[in-house]
Design a binder for these strands. Sequence first.
RNA 1: CGGGGCGUAGCACAGCCUGGUAGUGCGCACGGUUUGGGACCGUGAGGCCGCAAGUUCGAAUCUUGCCGCCCCGACCA
Length: 494
Amino acid sequence: MSKALPKRSENYSEWYNEIVKRADLAENSAVRGCMVIKPYGFAIWEKMQRALDDMFKATGHQNAYFPLFVPKSFLEKEEEHAEGFAKECAVVTHYRLKSDGSGGLEVDPNAKLEEELIVRPTSETVIWNAYKGWIQSWRDLPILVNQWCNVVRWEMRTRLFLRTAEFLWQEGHTAHATEEEAVSETHQMLGVYAEFAEDWMSMPVVQGIKTPSERFAGAVETFCIEAMMQDGKALQAGTSHFLGQNFARSFDVQFVNKENQLEYAWATSWGLSTRMMGALVMAHSDDNGLVLPPKLAPIQVVIIPIYRSPEDLATISEKIGPIIGELKAQGIAVKYDDSDNQRSGWKFAEYELRGVPVRLGIGMRDLENGTVEVARRDTLTKESRAVDFEKPEEFVLGIKLLLDEIQENIYNKALRFREDNTFLVDTWDEFKEQIEKGGFLMAHWDGTAETEAKIKEETKATIRCIPLISDEMAGKCVYSGKDSPKRVLFARAY
RNA sequence: CGGGGCGUAGCACAGCCUGGUAGUGCGCACGGUUUGGGACCGUGAGGCCGCAAGUUCGAAUCUUGCCGCCCCGACCA
């Protein structure tokens, strides 16, 4: 195995694949299109889950679990929804195998299911089928439920984390008595996603509305957060849908309102997936490997002893005991790597590859001088810091502040990158030229699906969203020259 | 589903054209010298050469079929 990663600037997609594998996040499995998430990668996902789950709970949601299998008849009920997902469904047709007589197994033709089961690509239908039994009165509302699970979408072409046939996610499904409340829920959860992306992943996002062509199948309105990757492409990082009464109608979920009239319930759904792992890699990492925001790093501080003899190691291990204790007391995830099968230089490179935000190097010289070498992953700089090995509180406080600083620094770096690569574009020639260079293009659009499709056909750029926050004035469509109320965000996307 | 590439040790690959003892590097095990940015020396273990059929005295190598994976496109989060 070669030591150096492919260069980000030379082959971005190979660079991405190599980081995912070499940083031990995930690998391709024997099953086509499905990945194995390795312990280190899963530890990051668990941190994401924890952060999001806490935010869901804080906004009044509860977790539940619904079946993996969706009867075909359920999926059929909402027409647009059915049409949207039909092309990518895995279908269970039998419930038994039998011996084929030569040591193998074959599907038992006598065990055909009366009704095929779809492996869920999303759970609106099963959940709304269940909600029918939960909702009678306005007093039963709202229902604010989330589930953490896997889903299957049979993709033609897959990439680790970014697009896999099976992936992990959370899907929130809420039911409300009024349209206003459901709309407000949709916005609230979009806000939660944006906050998660920015505060935890240090990844700035644009919040916006999807155009009808990019809308979730069955939704009235789809909201999204879009992030810019380091190659200038956009990545949809989370979606929140206002479903109107579409699913309530399809599954006949009516309730009695305060005026004693029957009314269909209002719905939302929102999801965020392991795709975020891919976003995390592509937002911050460099040619030395992964760069993790401290808040999501499974190991926030790694301590590497530098020694010659076992006696030196024993001395160092004893001396740094209080530092490790104080780091843990401050809630910092610390790893002391005293393994003797690799040398310190190897460990430096390895923890850099894995994106550990802060590395402490301690050798005999440090013990004499009362110092520790502090290296930060985001800037690849290092400095010698004074420490009282007996009373390390002050030193550890400094490390804690450093972690905060790194969290903020990589956010600012990503934000600056996005700003430097976001362009106001007013002519079609400019558009065509700039899209080749990458980045976000803010341009006027006449609001028609025809223009949107033409632009996609000619440039592969899609409207990522109509940004919610915008002080743009009206103008003329960059393609058709017709009137446009405001600029929309164009980009090539993952 | 089209176009390209690849299946040989845990990993990365050579060998195949021109059939004849299965190799190299990394990793692994043991021993020694080392240790402030991916150490070195020695010894050793590890292979149904993707699967199947065929040609041949003999197949990793030639022929046919199958399977799988990766990359690039169309579809999608």
